[in-house]
Write a protein that binds this DNA or RNA. Structure first.
Lengths: 403, 403
DNA sequence: AAAAATAGTTCTGTGACTGAACTATATTAG
DNA sequence: CTAATATAGTTCAGTCACAGAACTATTTTT
């Protein structure tokens, strides 16, 4: 039985259908009205009206007529108006802060970066860093603060999306920090804050491998291990609004010590620092923490068995964690994302082997595993997608009239 | 951004609101129109119309006026009409088949059971057993086949809810079996089939500890270990319509051998057969498989350390599995259900300890863990709830007119 | 007995959707 | 070259769900 939720009045009905139309145009890149009639299961009359509203609000534009295939009146292709909204997305990583400016289509107009020289920074420092990176990005696109319709920020750790509060982050001191309040001092546009794994997931959903899937999982492997969950084309954030904490899934009881203080966390086997910890025994004469990982990968690829065994174990643990996810969510697709995924070939075999050995086969295809290498700029783009999503998920046209 | 889903036309809008009203009345047991106005966020006028339709369809009844508290016109309490629909629910366990007959309020009118003498049965045998148990149950309630508005069946294993197909079950030979087609030979009413953990979950949602929660998890511990997930008051069945497979979550890499053929499954540590396997070393002079578990529990309670250690390990593994679930779903409530939960005090300490040690504390209350002892008849009631839910989740009034 | 409070109904207006008829614009057949 | 056909999109009238406001109903309080 359906529960106490759903759309109550007809205004909400229209808003929902407008959002569905806009979302479908975004997903396809281009769509004619007939396409929407079919996909959204609405009558031509209704679609006509919705599109008319969207055109009036300048959120979409009619293409100057593409190709005319077949006979009959040629379809008029509709696409998002790139200039309809400009948003900024920021990602906090242990390198520093990266900001990307996105147009309404999600294209990156410019980026700006600033490095951090400390392991953790406090709230005022974060604001300063974001300010600098944002200024650089805005300059690159020749834009001003007030051109921004929304701002999205992703940080690792526990973030409450509703309140914009960061409960804990490995990169921030002085938590809990009200990130939304903090940014509101600097910007007057709506602020959206989320866990960084959700950024990657949003980007995969909007621009990446998840574009054509209703359900998939994104596992990010970097300094930590994150998980994003898409169910029925919607980002799922856990029952209480907090992001999924996959890095601290236990893959070994009383296992390796994790930076969270517990033992046996997945992160304690597959993250950068976990690899570096073991690499000390395999790599000689490294000049720094970055270098040791590069050398480790190099040696493993060259056939050094000790080095390779470090990757093998990481792959096995990651595979085990993924197998558990598959057993619960049963998604058709899992995306592995992250900068470290450049060495995924070192992990891949073991991941696949462990997955196969630990998931139950039924008479249907098992999940595809796809790998996506990610840099900071893609994370920032995901933060921008978050901002666009936050902006558009309510009442897109009403917002247009305000603007 | 909202995706390509939602309510399209206004007929669906009404259907949705009717279902919401009905669901709310069921949840509360009794509700006045004003209550629905507040809870469903609809106008008095709309609620008036919806209730009028439901009364006309005989799905609900007006109470003969309860107490008149305070001044003003006394509210007219509405409740479900118990006689509006009669459904049957069946549960296949390794003991046999249990059937329960439920009225529209979910009250059990009668039950019927039949034992099986083999470990696995095939499709014709299943149908025979269900037939016998159903006949007994119907006799008890003085009802006929054609009084049934729907039939729900729960089996352990992999079940595709949409198609009614059982891909695999530990209790059925000859899989895949089209259970819906099988039962359609015997009954002309709609048939709903699901994984048995989902039955328990549906029952907790409708009648049990989950009644007042929007989000919770149900972990069933019996001969296998099952998981049911409720998100936003809806049973979640995995991306591809299959139940969550928690029993084969891996809690130990290359761990104990499971009956699924893999190693380290949670089930291989906490299910009946796993306990019995280890109990062989601790218990002397047991007369049979049931007896060995009873003796094991007895000895453990009496302070025998070897016996207690078996429970300790089971509790630790279950705690680890639960910790991983908490990290992903972050629910406010976890319900442990099952017949074996009679010995939960033997597991409880270790579960709590492991949970505490393996979940990350943030500045908010952690999940409550509640324990619910379940017998076969409660499972069957869950199957009935499944049937009621399936029947009502679409267009309750339209169905009334057909009937 | 009148006033106040609360519950529920009826009526009217707004708006969202659909179906059907219509217009627009292309290709193809003769 | 014209008519037929096919496809895309618009307009208009009708239906239906909802909300707001005025109404009725029923109780307690003053």
């Amino acid at each position: 039985m359906s529960p106490a939720r759903g759309i109550a009045d007809s205004a909400a009905l229209r808003a929902s259908n407008v959002a569905r139309a806009l979302s479908e145009i975004r997903r396809r890149g281009e769509a004619a009205r007939v396409d929407l009639v079919e996909t959204l299961d609405l009558s031509p009359a209704t679609v006509s009206g919705i599109i008319s509203d969207l055109l009036e609000a300048d959120l979409i534009i009619e293409a100057p007529s593409a190709v005319a295939a077949g006979r009959g009146r040629p379809r008029i292709q509709l696409s998002l108006n790139p200039r309809a909204r400009i948003v900024a997305g920021a990602k906090l990583s242990d390198d520093g802060v990266t900001v990307a400016i996105l147009d309404f289509c999600g294209e990156v107009l410019s980026t700006g970066e600033v490095a951090t020289d400390q392991a953790t920074i406090d709230a005022p420092m974060l604001l300063t860093k974001i300010d600098i990176a944002l200024k650089r990005a805005l300059q690159g696109a020749k834009l001003k603060d007030r051109d921004l319709a929304a701002f999205g920020l992703g940080v690792p750790g526990f973030v409450d999306v509703e309140s914009g509060l960061c409960h804990w982050s490995p990169l921030l001191s002085g938590a809990p920090i009200d990130l939304r309040a903090l940014l509101s001092k600097r910007l007057s546009c709506p602020i959206f804050v989320d866990n960084d794994a959700n950024l990657a997931t949003m980007a995969e959903l909007w621009f990446g491998h998840g574009r054509d899937e209703r359900d998939f999982l994104v596992v990010t492997v970097e300094h930590g291990v994150g998980l994003g969950i898409v169910l029925d084309t919607q980002l799922f954030r856990g029952a209480r609004g907090l992001g999924a904490e996959f890095g601290h899934t236990k893959v070994q009881i009383d296992g390796a010590l994790c930076r969270c203080g517990q033992r046996g966390c997945l992160e304690a086997y597959v993250s950068d620092y976990a690899l570096a910890r073991e690499a000390g025994l395999a790599v000689k004469g490294a000049t720094g923490p970055e270098d040791i990982l590069d050398k480790l990968a190099e040696q493993a690829k060259a056939g050094d068995d000790v080095s390779a065994s470090i990757y093998r174990r990481a792959g096995r643990m990651l595979g085990l964690g993924l197998a558990n996810l598959l057993n619960i969510f049963d998604p058709p697709l899992i995306i592995l994302a992250g900068e470290r995924m450049q060495n995924h070939d070192l992990l891949a075999t073991e991941i696949q082997r462990t997955l196969a050995a630990n998931t139950l086969a039924v008479d249907r295809p098992s999940a595809r595993v796809s790998v996506h290498r990610w840099g900071d700029q893609l994370w920032a783009r995901g933060a921008g997608a978050l901002a666009l999503d936050g902006l558009m998920s309510r009442a897109p046209i009403a917002q247009a009239e305000v603007a």
